[in-house]
């Protein structure tokens, strides 16, 4: 019996020819995993899109950095079905062709919840298309894959991918909430970032890698590290040459690779008239 009926279509060869004449394939394969092949009406189902990169190739994070293109999903769900936003784990930083980028290598899981409609009966075929740009030191190749998943109405039963998906959810950045607040002071060319710890904040933030999720605010060549400053943690970083001033938002992802990454967002204080 098929526990999880998942149709796996490997990456569509985009017919690309690199400058050296090698055929391109998107340099990665994608498929769609589900924690259960059955779901109850109106109850979210945990799924994950998996991208397996060829060795030495990477795709891009939501903030791709100086070049590249974020991976995107186009949903083709039946009427009444809803999807969440695919979650991305903390990226790794690359410097290729002199350009600083944020991306993912190896096997990448993007957890995403899918919710059937309240009147869900029988079996539904869910479809989505994923597009990515794979790059290496040798060049870049776009890739895309048609994904599909069959889900039957009924009590959820953990399938073979359930544990893997749960592990992937643990790697997703979660809002720091009350535990950490970010403030940003903008000068002409730089930003002073301050993290103000609250209840149950991590004891040490100096070892966290810090990635700007918001694009074009911090120069991607910057290695952001916070240092203790009184009760708080501070970092001064160069602004992106494309930053629009005054800044409207900055979201950072802080990862120490031991705990789930944290996400903090700053918005300028609203200017109230006195």
């Amino acid at each position: 019996m098929m526990i999880a009926r998942i149709t796996v279509l490997s990456a569509i060869a985009a017919g690309m020819v690199l400058g050296d004449g090698k055929p391109g394939t998107g340099r990665a394969k994608a498929d769609w995993l589900t924690a259960s092949s059955s779901a109850l009406p109106g109850q979210p189902l945990q799924t994950a899109i998996r991208i397996r990169h060829d060795k030495h190739w990477y795709s891009y994070w939501l903030n791709p950095g100086e070049a590249g293109m974020p991976t995107t999903v186009e949903w083709k769900l039946p009427p009444g079905w809803k999807h969440g936003e695919p979650g991305f784990p903390a990226p790794v930083g690359f410097l290729t062709s002199g350009l600083a980028s944020y991306g993912h290598v190896g096997e990448l899981l993007l957890p995403v919840t899918i919710t059937p409609p309240e009147d869900f009966i029988g079996t539904a075929k869910l479809e989505a298309e994923i597009s990515w740009l794979a790059c290496s030191n040798d060049g870049c190749v776009p890739g895309e894959a048609a994904l599909s998943l069959e889900v039957t109405a009924g009590d959820p039963l953990p399938g073979p991918a359930a544990a893997e998906i749960l592990a992937a959810i643990d790697l997703l950045p979660r809002p720091a909430g009350e535990s950490l607040r970010l403030s940003v002071e903008e000068t002409e060319n730089s930003l002073v970032l301050t993290l103000i710890p609250g209840k149950s904040a991590p004891a040490d933030l100096s070892q966290h890698e810090v990635f700007p999720l918001t694009t074009e605010v911090i120069d991607p060549k910057t290695r952001i590290r916070f240092a203790p400053g009184g009760q708080n943690w501070t970092a001064t970083v160069p602004k992106s040459e494309f930053a629009a001033s005054p800044l409207k938002e900055l979201t950072l992802v802080l990862a120490d690779r031991k705990h789930p990454p944290l996400q903090v967002t700053w918005n300028p204080p609203s200017r109230k008239s006195h």
């Binding site: 930083g93 290598v105 790697l171």
Partner: peptide, 29 residues
């Protein structure tokens, strides 16, 4: 120094595939 540091900032990662790739990237940098 920023660039040197950045070049090493291919982060320790969650699995061996990443670590391997990290070394490759370092050498090729």
């Amino acid at each position: 120094s920023t660039i040197k540091k950045k070049s090493l900032d291919i982060s320790p990662s969650v699995n061996n595939v990443c670590l391997e790739s990290r070394n490759i990237m370092k050498n090729s940098l």
